[in-house]
């Protein structure tokens, strides 16, 4: 597995491995950040935030599990970086209450937390239908619009919102059973 080789090199602080991962995943990370930031930010802003994501990756390489794909971790970091940027710059920013209280992490120090929460979220998502999983991932992690997701899945926007609400509720209960209360899940 290519990722595994690169993660192992990254753990040994090989800058070439970092460059290779940036080449491989920058489009993925940039897309998520652009989706969440919306049109109010320039490509340079999104590039800078993408750089922050890969910087975190470098800083926290030793915490990565090389047996797993790196993309969920990057998606979670990209999402958090973009959300934090919105919070910084927009005083009127209102976090999407559906998810923000369930799972988020907003600093480098939270990288372990990101990894652990990702594991739990993934476990929970595996118990859902493909449609529910896809809706959840696209909306919460990829920052895609309900309008676009509903078209793609062939559902009404209201049906999407209802499913998202139920999924969020399941996830919250799932996490709470494993000791993650709202206080612990930032």
């Amino acid at each position: 597995m290519k990722d595994k080789r690169l993660i192992l090199k990254l753990k040994k602080k090989d800058p070439k491995a970092l460059d290779a991962l940036i080449k491989e995943y920058s489009s993925y990370v940039f897309t998520i950040i652009r989706n969440i930031l919306g049109g109010a930010f320039t490509a340079e802003d999104a590039e800078e935030l993408s750089a922050d994501v890969f910087f975190r990756l470098w800083e926290n390489a030793e915490k990565l599990n090389e047996e797993r794909s790196i993309s969920p971790y990057l998606a979670a970091c990209a999402r958090n970086c973009a959300k934090n940027k919105l919070r910084e710059l927009r005083t009127d920013y209102c976090a999407d209450e559906l998810f923000e209280d369930v799972i988020s992490a907003d600093s480098v120090q939270d990288s372990c937390e990101i990894s652990r929460q990702l594991e739990l979220v993934t476990e929970c998502l595996n118990g859902l239908s493909d449609t529910e999983q896809e809706l959840f991932v696209r909306f919460y992690y990829y920052g895609e619009k309900i309008k676009d997701i509903s078209k793609m899945l062939g559902l009404s926007e209201n049906a999407c919102k209802t499913k998202l609400f139920r999924t969020r509720d399941k996830l919250r209960k799932y996490l709470a059973e494993r000791g993650y209360t709202n206080e612990k899940i930032r």
Binding site: S26, F30, T31, E44, R68, E134
Partner: peptide, 26 residues
């Protein structure tokens, strides 16, 4: 692995941003 199972829609193409800029910044 949901991140590989579902890839973002409208993935930004490499010509619309600069991976080299990201590398330099990092």
């Amino acid at each position: 692995n949901w991140a590989e199972k579902f890839i973002p829609n409208n993935m930004v193409k490499s010509e619309n941003f600069s991976a080299d800029n990201i590398i330099l910044s990092v």
